[in-house]
């Protein structure tokens, strides 16, 4: 098993953190993981993406030609990375901001209105965890509980204990949203 995921969006959308939480959860599950950010001179406001690989054997390349999954938080990210997704791959995309569906017919598109859900939860910043929750359900690579635990530890280490609960809710809402869509099919 080897799963490559690209997370992409605007700087400030929590892209790098979402990838890190997934990598951490994978590590806790005994998998090999790599987390590779795109890095640039911008501190905020630019575009951001990271590639996470989870595998049950040592990982060679942390760079992935054809990711099995893409999490696109805005339209430029979907435009840029959609062509690279592997056949039969997954695209979780931000239905709140992206006005189109994936053009590819050989991939599974999972629209999640992450901004709307985050607003309902009362904190616009948890969009990354909503999207991650949906990816976790759609990919099945690690259990949701492992991701919640990894997120909670990450928050504690950053001194953000008070945000654990809302992020847990965000992960669950995203997970359930994907469940609804996938269950329908």
């Amino acid at each position: 098993m080897e799963l490559g995921v690209i997370f992409a969006g605007f700087g400030g959308q929590g892209i790098l953190l979402a990838g890190k939480v997934l990598a951490r959860a994978g590590m806790d599950q005994g998998l090999e993981v790599t987390w590779l950010p795109s890095y640039g001179p911008e501190m905020r406001g630019g575009t951001a993406n990271c590639t996470v690989v989870l595998a049950d054997q040592p990982i060679g390349s942390p760079i992935v030609d054809a990711p099995r999954a893409l999490v696109a938080m805005n339209l430029p990210s979907l435009d840029r990375f959609e062509p690279r997704v592997a056949a039969e791959g997954l695209i979780v995309y931000n239905g709140s901001l992206i006005p189109r569906d994936p053009k590819r017919e050989d991939v599974q598109g999972i629209p999640v209105p992450v901004n709307d859900i985050a607003r309902e939860l009362g904190n616009a910043r948890v969009i990354n965890m909503v999207a991650l929750g949906a990816l976790v359900r759609a990919s099945g690579v690690v259990p949701l509980e492992a991701v919640v635990a990894a997120m909670a530890r990450e928050m504690r280490e950053r001194g953000r204990d008070r945000l654990i609960e809302i992020n847990r809710q965000a992960l669950e809402r995203g997970f359930n949203e994907a469940e609804k869509l996938l269950g329908d099919r």
Binding site: A23, V33, W35, L36, P37, I59, P62
Partner: peptide, 9 residues
């Protein structure tokens, strides 16, 4: 920079 920036267990 790739190894410097990337994370791994």
């Amino acid at each position: 920079g790739m190894l410097g920036q990337m994370m791994e267990p």
